[in-house]
Design a protein around this nucleic acid. Structure first.
Length: 421
DNA sequence: AGTCCTTTGAAGTAG
DNA sequence: CTACTTCAAAGGACT
């Protein structure tokens, strides 16, 4: 399993070599390159195919030992090519492409990199220590409370908020790059207005609440507080993580053992009707938790959040069900990563289809270094932890069948659907 | 308007 | 326990 230690923690962390995407300037470069090169997509196609085929022989099955090439301008080119390759693959393979044959692509697939967790689901102590060191702002339990990160022990959930900003390099730099989508480097730090960079046009603009994320159907006034999908853990530009509103910290969770990050998370992401009200809560903006998507709520954004307001229901059973707001699953690590990186990829590539973008994101995910992935695993773990605290009775099963039936006939028709087979 | 596509991971179900 | 299924996000493409 992902033994972060194994005596190999060193070399793992060492040669991971920060494959972080130099989004900033590179983005323009790539975008320009993408655009220009896209015109020559047809020309590039053949060469790409050749390259892929040539490499397929050597790295056919698993590119496990792929070493990141020397970083240079090549990287940007590679990224652009990645987009082309993606488009190409979709054209020629019909999406069947599986093995990443990217000669120059810094594919760094560490076999045991996928999860920092121990088999029991807990983050390995080493991983925790690692996270703690590399990611102090994360609420990784300190040595005192290191016993079990999953259990909401008071120690773990202490109010000790390490609001420390590393001047030289923020340990959350990759996460802050979230905000790069919203706050390009050129944006003055003090400028906290939710101006974002239009991924398509590259023009800074003020986002509509709906553009920010379905997670945050906020009024424009509240937008600034949650500028990012991971805003609960992502510091806003010049603000420290777990930013405290000017009026003070909102502690809607007096009873719930919860640390500051949790509190921040809850107060910003979870709806008042879910979050126990504190008498002194500064404001309950009526921000529905991202995890809650009630059709009733959707239809009546300005109406009551309480789904119980709906009385006309066919039957008691259905009524019950309608009453229940749809509590979404907590996002996993990859989903969190996707939310962060999507805009970036969209900006870099000319592709628009989410399916294609997701393929790229999937490959990038694998190319992430261990610590970078660990960050998202940790974020996801926190998401789940908080989710379970807020919705103790919730089960993923509750959402089964809620969605329209997906067409998995393509994939698993034989096993599931078709009895004739 | 609704579904598909596509990705990974978590959690559920079935055997 | 293992294998499989469902759902989470996203948005263009498709029906």
């Amino acid at each position: 399993m992902p033994q972060l230690n194994g005596g190999g923690g060193d070399e793992l962390g060492a040669n991971d070599e920060m494959i972080s995407f130099k989004d900033e300037g590179e983005q323009e470069e790539k975008t320009a390159e993408s655009v220009s090169a896209e015109r020559d997509l047809d020309d590039v196609k053949s060469s790409l195919v050749n390259e892929s085929e040539n490499n397929s022989s050597s790295s056919d099955s698993e590119p496990t030992e792929r070493r990141p090439p020397p970083r240079s301008d090549i990287e940007s080119y590679e990224k652009a090519r990645e987009c082309f390759t993606e488009a190409l693959r979709r054209q020629e393979d019909g999406g069947l492409f599986k093995s990443p044959h990217y000669p120059g692509y810094p594919f760094l697939v560490l076999p045991d990199l996928t999860s920092p967790y121990l088999p029991n689901g807990a983050l390995s102590p080493t991983a925790r220590t690692y996270l703690q060191m590399k990611w102090p702002l994360l609420d990784v339990p300190s040595s005192a409370a290191l016993k079990d990160s999953r259990s909401p022990t008071p120690g773990h959930l202490s109010n000790k908020v390490p609001v420390v900003q590393h001047a030289h390099m923020h340990p959350l730099t990759p996460l802050i790059t979230y905000s790069n989508d919203h706050f390009p480097p050129a944006t003055p730090p003090a400028h906290l207005s939710p101006e974002i960079l239009d991924p398509k046009t590259g023009i800074p603009r003020t986002p509509h609440p709906s553009e920010l994320s379905p997670y945050y159907p906020l009024s424009p006034g509240a937008v600034g507080q949650i500028p990012h999908p991971l805003g609960w853990l992502v510091p806003q530009q010049a603000q420290p993580m777990y930013s405290i509103p000017p009026g003070g910290f909102r502690h809607p969770y007096p009873a719930l053992a919860m640390n500051a990050s949790m509190s921040s998370l809850v107060s910003s992401r979870f709806p008042p009707h879910v979050v126990p009200h504190h008498p002194h809560s500064l404001h309950q903006t009526g921000i529905p938790h991202p995890a809650i998507v009630s059709p009733a709520i959707k239809q009546e954004p300005n109406g009551e959040l309480s789904p119980a307001s709906h009385t006309k229901s066919p039957g008691p059973a259905k009524k019950e069900e309608e009453k229940k707001p749809h509590i979404k699953k907590p996002l996993n690590a990859f989903m969190l990563y996707m939310k962060e990186m999507r805009a970036k990829v969209v900006a870099e590539c000319t592709l628009k289809e989410s399916a294609a973008i997701n393929q790229i994101l999937g490959r990038r995910w694998h190319s992430l270094s261990r610590e970078e992935q660990a960050k998202y695993y940790e974020l996801a773990r926190k998401e789940r932890q908080l989710h379970s605290q807020l919705y103790p009775g919730w089960s993923a099963r509750d959402n089964y069948g809620k969605r329209k039936k997906r067409k998995r006939e393509n994939k698993a028709i034989s096993a599931a659907e078709d009895p004739s087979l």
